[in-house]
């Protein structure tokens, strides 16, 4: 990982010298086994950039905060799609952005790492040895076999090498997907439940939603400048509030079904919504369910600029005839 970080710093510093105003990448986090989004604005700051298997964040949404600046952004394979998505919907001016792709061998599930690493052990270096990440610490080496320790989204990821980027760093990454694993395993398990158990499951998980809206704020497909669930501009949607601010279960259903529906066909599968949730609501189940249905129902047909729900085919399946 050292070489990758090195070339990242070099390129960032070069881009910042050559007119890029903000370089969005990752820096080391304050917690054990963590990274954080980092915004370099001067070439010297490039020295703080890192890339390691804790760089799980999708940084693309930050781009919309800099509409007038020349920016560069680090993307993994699973993040890259968000750039084209946002550019197609004209939230981003692609011309102003340098997309820096990094091949990714998978992100480690932080909790698994913490469970196996002695507390307060500083990670000095991370080495990728084939299908294992080796964490070097003052107390010795700790190997983490990918198959057992990667984040769920990484275990089924086939986008390890970013596409559509302006700059590709490092060496091609070997696919990390576990062929044994069905990406839709979770969705199918819920589908197989009897209706009553489905209801009980969702009542339980939605019941603990805090409506902190972190899942919306982080999502690159939640790109509306005014969200249906807020009144940040007086009179927006004639003052209608779709859900009460006071937490309650029916409104949480409303929020979740509509959040998932608004990103249907536009979700890029980065799983950020699920990662940020403080109460671990399995939001990806909803996103994946919709992706699965869209594929099954309208898979072959053309999609519009904002995805398959902005398009139609006269011979789409019709259950309503």
């Amino acid at each position: 990982m050292k070489e990758l970080t090195e070339s990242l710093r070099q390129e960032a510093s070069r881009l910042l010298r050559e007119g890029v105003e903000v370089f969005i990448g990752y820096a080391a986090g304050s917690l054990q086994a963590s990274a954080r989004p980092f915004f370099a604005t001067r070439p010297e700051e490039a020295a703080e950039l890192v890339f390691n298997p804790f760089c799980v964040h999708n940084l693309v949404k930050y781009l919309v905060r800099f509409p007038d600046k020349r920016t560069a952004v680090v993307v993994k394979g699973c993040d890259g799609g968000a750039v084209s998505r946002l550019a197609e919907e004209r939230h981003l001016d692609r011309e102003k952005i340098t997309v820096v792709g990094v091949p990714c061998g998978g992100m480690l599930e932080r909790e698994r790492v913490l469970a196996q690493l002695p507390p307060a052990t500083r990670i000095e270096a991370v080495e990728e040895r084939g299908n294992t990440y080796v964490l070097h610490t003052a107390r010795g080496e700790y190997p983490f076999e990918k198959k057992a320790n990667l984040a769920a989204k990484c275990l089924v990821c086939v986008r390890n090498n970013p596409v559509g980027v302006d700059l590709l760093l490092g060496k091609e990454a070997m696919p990390v997907a576990d062929p044994e694993r069905d990406p839709l395993e979770g969705v199918k398990a819920v589908e197989a439940l009897p209706a009553g158990e489905k209801a009980a499951f969702w009542d339980r998980v939605f019941g603990r939603c805090l409506r902190c809206y972190a899942c919306r704020e982080v999502c690159p497909a939640c790109s509306c400048t005014q969200c249906a669930f807020e009144q940040a501009v007086p009179g927006w949607q004639q003052g209608a509030m779709w859900v009460e601010k006071a937490k309650n279960l029916p409104d949480s259903y409303h929020y979740h079904l509509i959040r998932a529906f608004h990103v249907a066909g536009r979700c890029t599968g980065c799983a950020e919504c699920e990662r940020v949730c403080p109460v671990r609501i399995p939001l990806m189940l909803l996103n994946q369910k919709l992706a699965k249905e869209i594929e099954a129902l309208f898979g072959g047909a053309p999609a519009g600029a904002c995805g398959p729900l902005c398009a139609y085919a006269p011979d789409d399946p019709d259950q309503f005839a």
Binding site: F38, Y62, L210, R211, C212, Y213, E217, V276
Partner: peptide
């Protein structure tokens, strides 16, 4: 810059 402005 990195804050999401969420309610967590």
């Amino acid at each position: 810059r990195r804050c999401l402005g969420c309610g967590i």
